[in-house]
Computed example of a mutant assay.
Amino acid sequence: MQELMKADKNTAIPMQSKKGYSKLKTNLKYIRENYFLYLLIAPALILTIVFKYVPMYGAIIAFKDFSTIKGILGSEWVGFANFTKFLSSPNFGTIFMSTLKLSFYGLILGFPVPIILALMLNQVRRAAIKKNIQLVLYAPNFISVVVIVGMLFIFLSPTGPINQIVTLLTGEPVSFLSDPDYFRTIYILSGIWQAAGWSSIIYVAALANVDPELHNAATIDGANILQRIIHIDLPTLKPLMAVTFILAAGGIMAIGFEKAYLMQTAMNLPTSEIIPTYVYKVGLQAGDYAYSAAVGLFNSVINVVMLIVVNYIVKKLNEGEGLY
C-alpha cells in the first residue's frame, strides 16, 4: 500500500507539470493568433508603466534623509524615522481627522446624488428637454477649480448676495469663509454641485440598457413610478453602484489639495488643513522632500487598506459581487 502511495506521489508531479506546460502552450498560441489585440493595448500599458510604476522608485526617499546634492541613492537611510516624526507630531491628530471627516462626509453625501439624478433623468421622455437638462447638469464639471473658488468668495463674501439675504433675515452677515465650522459644508456642497451631473453619466448609460418592456409590464400590473424604480431600475444599477462605491471608498483619503488650499484662510485652518495641503506646504514650500514623501505614502497606504476593507464588506453584503 505504501509503495502504491509513493508511486502516486511520483506520478502526480509530472502530471501537474504537464498541465502547466499545456496551459502555457495554449496561452502562447492564443497570443500568436490575437497579437493585434495586444498591440492595441500596448501603448496604454507602456504609458501606465512609465508614468505610474517607474515613479514609484522615488518613494524610497520617504525612508531616507534625502539630500538633493547626494541624490536618492546617496542619501542616508533612516528607515521609519520620517513616519514616526509625522505620527508623533502635535498636528497629526487634527490633520488626519480633518482629512478623514472631509472625505467621509463627501462620500456619504455625494455618492447618492448622481444616482438620484440619473433616475430622475431616466423619467424624462422628451429627448429635447432631457438634453437641455443634461447640459445644465454637466456644465459645472468643466469649470476650473480656481473659478469655482473665486465664485465662492464672491457669493459668500460679507457683501455678497448670500450675505445680503442673511443680513435681511438676521441683521448681520456671516463670515462663511473664515469660520472653520462652515468650511466642510461649503467644500462638500460645492463639490457635489460641480461633479454630480457629470458623475451621473455612467448611471444614465446603464439605465438606457433596461428593456422598456419591463416598465410596460410593470405599468400594466399597476406599479407606479416609485415601485418601478425600486424593482427595475435600482437592481440594474446595483452592480455598478457596488463598483463605484468601492472605488470611491478606496480613494477616501485622496483629496486634491487645490480646492482646499485655495479656500484656506488664516481663520479656517483648523478644518481646512488636510494631508494634501500639509504635504504641499512641507514638501514644496519648506523643501523637506523626504518628510512630505513619508506623509504622502502614509496617505496612500490608508487608501489601499480602505479599498481592501470596503471591497470585502461589499462582497459580503452583495452576494459575492465586488471589485475583485
Rank of each mutant, 00 (worst) to 15 (best):
Q194S: 11
D288H: 13
P235A: 09
N141D: 07
I165K: 09
W77K: 09
P114S: 01
I202T: 10
I230M: 07
A266V: 14
P161Q: 12
M241F: 02
T48C: 08
F83M: 04
P276D: 06
I108N: 02
L168F: 11
M241H: 05
S22N: 08
G191S: 08
K131E: 07
M5H: 14
L240V: 08
L121V: 07
D179A: 11
F63C: 06
S200H: 04
W77L: 10
V279E: 05
G322L: 10
I31W: 04
M267Q: 15
N132S: 15
I46V: 13
M120K: 06
L284S: 11
I229K: 06
S98L: 00
L28P: 00
N209F: 13
Y38M: 03
S190R: 01
T167H: 08
E172Q: 15
P212S: 09
N299L: 09
F66R: 00
I72K: 00
L214C: 04
F183R: 07
W193I: 10
H231S: 11
F36V: 10
I225L: 07
I61T: 00
F142A: 14
L107I: 06
A293I: 08
I302Q: 09
L107C: 01
N27F: 12
Y261C: 03
F176C: 08
T185H: 12
H215Q: 06
K316F: 10
Y187H: 06
I202D: 03
S300M: 14
N10A: 14
I95Y: 00
A128P: 00
K29V: 02
K64N: 04
V310Q: 06
I186F: 08
G71H: 04
G256Q: 10
E321L: 12
S103Y: 00
L4Y: 13
T167I: 10
I246T: 06
F176A: 04
K259C: 05
P43H: 04
V149R: 04
F83Y: 06
L152Q: 09
I275L: 12
G110M: 01
G283Y: 06
S17K: 13
S190I: 00
R126H: 12
S67E: 04
A128E: 14
K315R: 15
P270L: 09
I192Y: 10
L307D: 08
G296E: 09
L152N: 10
L307E: 09
Y291F: 15
E273M: 15
S272A: 15
P43A: 10
K101R: 07
V210C: 10
N163H: 05
R228A: 05
Y53D: 05
T99N: 01
L214D: 01
G58T: 01
S157Q: 08
V243M: 04
I13Q: 11
N10K: 14
S75G: 01
K52C: 05
A139R: 08
A208Y: 11
K23F: 13
T11K: 11
K130G: 02
K130P: 01
N10E: 14
V146G: 06
A254P: 02
T26G: 13
A195K: 11
G110R: 00
K64M: 07
A266Q: 13
R32V: 03
V54T: 03
K29T: 12
A196H: 02
R125L: 07
G191M: 02
I275M: 12
T236S: 11
